[in-house]
Amino acid sequence: MASSTAIRELQRDLEDKANDLSKLQKDIAKNHQVRKKYTVQLGENELVLKELDLLNEGANVYKLIGPVLVKQDLAEANANVRKRIDYISAELKRLDATLQDLEEKQNSKKDAILKLQQRIQSLQAGKAKA
Protein backbone atom coordinates (compact mmCIF):
# COMPACT_ATOMS: atom_id res chain seq x y z
CA MET A 1 0.00 0.00 0.00
CA ALA A 2 2.32 2.68 -1.26
CA SER A 3 -0.53 5.05 -1.96
CA SER A 4 -1.83 5.00 1.62
CA THR A 5 1.57 5.91 3.04
CA ALA A 6 1.85 8.65 0.46
CA ILE A 7 -1.51 9.98 1.54
CA ARG A 8 -0.47 9.89 5.17
CA GLU A 9 2.64 11.85 4.36
CA LEU A 10 0.68 14.37 2.40
CA GLN A 11 -1.74 14.80 5.25
CA ARG A 12 1.09 15.44 7.68
CA ASP A 13 2.45 17.96 5.27
CA LEU A 14 -0.95 19.57 5.06
CA GLU A 15 -1.19 19.82 8.83
CA ASP A 16 2.19 21.50 9.02
CA LYS A 17 1.21 23.97 6.38
CA ALA A 18 -2.06 24.70 8.10
CA ASN A 19 -0.19 25.40 11.35
CA ASP A 20 2.14 27.74 9.52
CA LEU A 21 -0.77 29.51 7.99
CA SER A 22 -2.52 30.03 11.31
CA LYS A 23 0.75 31.37 12.74
CA LEU A 24 1.03 33.79 9.86
CA GLN A 25 -2.51 34.91 10.39
CA LYS A 26 -1.80 35.54 14.05
CA ASP A 27 1.21 37.61 13.08
CA ILE A 28 -0.87 39.63 10.70
CA ALA A 29 -3.47 40.29 13.36
CA LYS A 30 -0.76 41.41 15.79
CA ASN A 31 0.73 43.61 13.13
CA HIS A 32 -2.64 45.22 12.60
CA GLN A 33 -2.99 45.99 16.28
CA VAL A 34 0.45 47.54 16.54
CA ARG A 35 -0.25 49.56 13.47
CA LYS A 36 -3.46 50.85 14.94
CA LYS A 37 -1.65 51.90 18.10
CA TYR A 38 0.98 53.74 16.13
CA THR A 39 -1.59 55.48 13.99
CA VAL A 40 -3.33 56.77 17.09
CA GLN A 41 -0.01 57.99 18.50
CA LEU A 42 0.83 59.67 15.25
CA GLY A 43 -2.45 61.53 15.31
CA GLU A 44 -1.88 62.64 18.89
CA ASN A 45 1.64 63.81 18.14
CA GLU A 46 0.48 65.77 15.21
CA LEU A 47 -2.09 67.49 17.40
CA VAL A 48 0.63 68.32 19.92
CA LEU A 49 2.86 69.68 17.22
CA LYS A 50 0.07 71.88 15.96
CA GLU A 51 -0.54 73.25 19.43
CA LEU A 52 3.14 73.79 20.05
CA ASP A 53 3.41 75.70 16.82
CA LEU A 54 0.57 77.91 17.97
CA LEU A 55 2.28 78.75 21.26
CA ASN A 56 4.25 81.97 21.35
CA GLU A 57 7.95 82.14 22.15
CA GLY A 58 7.84 82.80 25.85
CA ALA A 59 5.32 80.11 26.81
CA ASN A 60 6.25 77.63 29.52
CA VAL A 61 6.13 74.04 28.37
CA TYR A 62 6.37 71.07 30.71
CA LYS A 63 6.92 67.43 30.04
CA LEU A 64 5.45 64.84 32.35
CA ILE A 65 8.21 62.47 33.34
CA GLY A 66 7.07 59.94 35.85
CA PRO A 67 5.21 61.82 38.58
CA VAL A 68 6.74 65.22 37.96
CA LEU A 69 6.37 67.96 35.42
CA VAL A 70 9.77 68.94 34.07
CA LYS A 71 10.10 72.32 32.49
CA GLN A 72 11.27 72.19 28.90
CA ASP A 73 12.32 74.68 26.35
CA LEU A 74 9.63 75.27 23.72
CA ALA A 75 12.11 74.77 20.89
CA GLU A 76 13.35 71.56 22.47
CA ALA A 77 9.84 70.25 22.98
CA ASN A 78 9.04 71.11 19.40
CA ALA A 79 12.12 69.27 18.12
CA ASN A 80 11.31 66.28 20.32
CA VAL A 81 7.79 66.03 18.99
CA ARG A 82 9.00 66.29 15.41
CA LYS A 83 11.54 63.58 16.00
CA ARG A 84 8.89 61.41 17.53
CA ILE A 85 6.58 61.94 14.54
CA ASP A 86 9.39 60.99 12.19
CA TYR A 87 10.08 57.89 14.19
CA ILE A 88 6.45 56.84 14.25
CA SER A 89 6.07 57.38 10.51
CA ALA A 90 9.16 55.29 9.85
CA GLU A 91 7.78 52.60 12.12
CA LEU A 92 4.47 52.67 10.29
CA LYS A 93 6.23 52.28 6.97
CA ARG A 94 8.18 49.34 8.30
CA LEU A 95 5.01 47.74 9.58
CA ASP A 96 3.39 48.21 6.21
CA ALA A 97 6.27 46.45 4.52
CA THR A 98 6.18 43.53 6.93
CA LEU A 99 2.43 43.32 6.59
CA GLN A 100 2.69 43.09 2.84
CA ASP A 101 5.34 40.45 3.18
CA LEU A 102 3.21 38.46 5.58
CA GLU A 103 0.21 38.66 3.33
CA GLU A 104 2.21 37.42 0.40
CA LYS A 105 3.43 34.52 2.47
CA GLN A 106 -0.09 33.81 3.59
CA ASN A 107 -1.37 33.71 0.03
CA SER A 108 1.37 31.37 -1.10
CA LYS A 109 0.66 29.12 1.87
CA LYS A 110 -3.02 29.09 1.01
CA ASP A 111 -2.22 28.09 -2.54
CA ALA A 112 0.07 25.34 -1.36
CA ILE A 113 -2.59 24.02 0.98
CA LEU A 114 -5.18 24.05 -1.78
CA LYS A 115 -2.86 22.10 -4.04
CA LEU A 116 -2.15 19.59 -1.33
CA GLN A 117 -5.83 19.08 -0.71
CA GLN A 118 -6.45 18.50 -4.38
CA ARG A 119 -3.65 15.99 -4.54
CA ILE A 120 -4.99 14.12 -1.56
CA GLN A 121 -8.43 14.09 -3.06
CA SER A 122 -7.21 12.77 -6.37
CA LEU A 123 -5.17 10.11 -4.65
CA GLN A 124 -8.14 9.02 -2.60
CA ALA A 125 -10.32 8.96 -5.68
CA GLY A 126 -7.73 6.81 -7.44
CA LYS A 127 -7.67 4.45 -4.50
CA ALA A 128 -11.43 4.21 -4.43
CA LYS A 129 -11.46 3.22 -8.10
CA ALA A 130 -8.71 0.67 -7.69
Binding site: E44, N45, E51, Y62, L69
Partner: peptide
Protein backbone atom coordinates in the same frame (compact mmCIF):
# COMPACT_ATOMS: atom_id res chain seq x y z
CA UNK B 1 -2.15 68.83 28.61
CA UNK B 2 -1.36 68.93 24.93
CA UNK B 3 -0.96 65.18 24.62
CA UNK B 4 1.99 62.80 24.76
CA UNK B 5 2.95 64.11 28.18
CA UNK B 6 3.45 67.68 27.08
CA UNK B 7 1.92 70.46 29.12
CA UNK B 8 1.83 74.15 28.49
CA UNK B 9 1.00 77.11 30.69
CA UNK B 10 -1.90 78.97 29.23
CA UNK B 11 -4.41 81.62 30.13
CA UNK B 12 -8.09 80.69 30.27
CA UNK B 13 -8.73 82.30 26.93
CA UNK B 14 -5.91 80.44 25.23
CA UNK B 15 -7.07 77.24 26.87
CA UNK B 16 -10.52 77.69 25.41
CA UNK B 17 -8.96 78.08 21.98
CA UNK B 18 -7.06 74.83 22.41
CA UNK B 19 -10.18 73.07 23.65
CA UNK B 20 -12.31 74.25 20.75
CA UNK B 21 -9.66 73.04 18.30
CA UNK B 22 -9.72 69.71 20.04
Amino acid sequence: LLGEGYYAERTAKQTIEILTRR
